[in-house]
Computed example of a mutant assay.
Amino acid sequence: MTSSSPPPPASAGHDPHDHADRAASFDRDADVYAQVRPTYPRDAVEWLLPAGARRVLDLAAGTGKLTEVVVGLAGAGTDVVAVDPSLPMLAELSARLPGVATRQGTAEHLPLPDASVDAVLVAQAWHWFDADAAAAEIARVLRPGGTLGVVWNDRDAEVDWVARFGEILHRGDRLEPAAGHDALTELGGRFTAVEAETFRWVDRLPSGALRTLAGTRSYLLRLPEAERETRLAEVDALEATHPDLAGRTEIELPYVTYAFRARTRGAVPPR
């Protein structure tokens, strides 16, 4: 399947406004997701990843977009484990990153022992969690003084065509998550105060890939087929007519990446 090929139509009977149904949509077309979804900027991941971390959990790892950056930064001697509820997503991750251990699991029920990791990183997924239960589980598996890092890509809607693209994607979407600023609001007393940083960067996609990217959004995946095709046709029209896109062989899609980190309370034990 090429990067410009849309995923097959969503099955009938799905509710685009149901949180659990939307979360389950990621079992479909993991290879397409891996092709067109953005990565995360290296400097943001460097900011999240604690120095000297020996074991890192990428939680809700999906196809490994963040995992790949972590592996590149962590270097020899660091063990990275990827956890996700979707077996198709983990299979795609393993195909791309065969040296990374994978486990099926959720943020609320992590398949790891107590105090077993130095960092838990979460990319573009906190809004799918039961925040309080996830915070408790993450605190359980982190060593004292361990780091929770959350990273979130938002399209830069200050750019006109990007704002129009977003309007097409999310028109009528009652579950569209708030911007990354609100990613960590329910950590309770388990963690230190949350620190935040912002990073700007540009992803580059081949022409035609906006349709494919739109087709990986959970809201569109759960729309009725006719409505979904209408939205994708709007994306095609935007790319064909907007002066910043028409006739281009490459699309520059600007992102604002929000990064958040907090540490479990207590000193890091000597090793």
Rank of each mutant, 00 (worst) to 15 (best):
W201N: 01
G188V: 02
P85I: 12
D156N: 13
F165V: 07
R55A: 08
E252D: 13
L97V: 10
H109C: 10
E46D: 11
A61D: 07
A240P: 02
D154R: 06
G99C: 02
W161G: 09
V202W: 08
L57E: 06
E158M: 04
G64F: 01
A136F: 01
L87F: 05
Q124H: 13
G166H: 15
R211S: 10
P144A: 02
P243M: 14
R204Y: 09
E229C: 02
I168L: 13
E227A: 12
H181E: 14
V141I: 07
G77A: 10
H14D: 08
V202A: 08
S116Y: 07
A76S: 14
L49N: 09
G146N: 08
V71P: 00
T185M: 11
H19I: 11
L121Q: 07
G77F: 03
A101P: 06
A115G: 07
G188F: 09
A20N: 09
G13C: 13
A226Y: 03
H17N: 11
L253K: 05
L93K: 05
L210S: 05
V194E: 08
T78A: 14
S4C: 13
A30F: 02
S116G: 09
D84I: 06
R231Q: 14
T249C: 10
D114F: 00
F129Y: 06
H242F: 10
E195P: 08
G146V: 10
A60Y: 03
Y40I: 04
E239Q: 13
R37D: 02
P224D: 12
P144K: 08
A24L: 12
E68R: 15
P50A: 10
A196Q: 15
R204N: 01
A24P: 06
R271H: 12
T185C: 09
S25E: 11
G105R: 07
R42H: 13
T198F: 08
